[in-house]
């Protein structure tokens, strides 16, 4: 598994973790502890997404801004069987 695939996998796992924490926080909005966990993992996830978007292709439109070239279309399309 090369760096690109590893990063994609890690971002996916972080997304999963952030969603799990948000589901818990939906029913426990005042739980400071859980909020800190959420902030922590959400920051790491965003940072990794930015880094991935800089190195390979933007994962979200938010990360598509670039001073070189427009890379938003560079992402592989879902039916191209890349996101295995």
């Amino acid at each position: 598994m090369n760096n690109k695939e590893q990063m994609l996998r890690d971002i996916g796992i972080l997304c999963f973790t952030v969603v799990e924490l948000s589901l818990y926080l939906d029913t426990h909005p005042n739980d400071r502890n859980a909020i800190e966990y959420f902030n922590h993992y959400n920051r790491i996830k965003t940072q990794m997404e930015r880094e991935f978007s800089k190195n390979y292709y933007p994962l979200k439109l938010d990360y598509a801004d670039s001073n070189q070239e427009w890379r938003w279309g560079a992402a592989p399309l879902p039916w191209e069987g890349v996101c295995g």
Binding site: G12, I13, L14, F16, T17, E20, L21, Y24, T27, H28, D31, N33, A34, Y37
Partner: peptide
């Protein structure tokens, strides 16, 4: 009611299990 006492250390394992709790 669920109480928060931390999550799995290994997130990859948690991902395979299907929960971080």
């Amino acid at each position: 009611w669920q109480r928060f006492n931390g999550i799995y250390e290994d997130l990859e394992k948690a991902y395979r299990i299907g929960t971080i709790f």
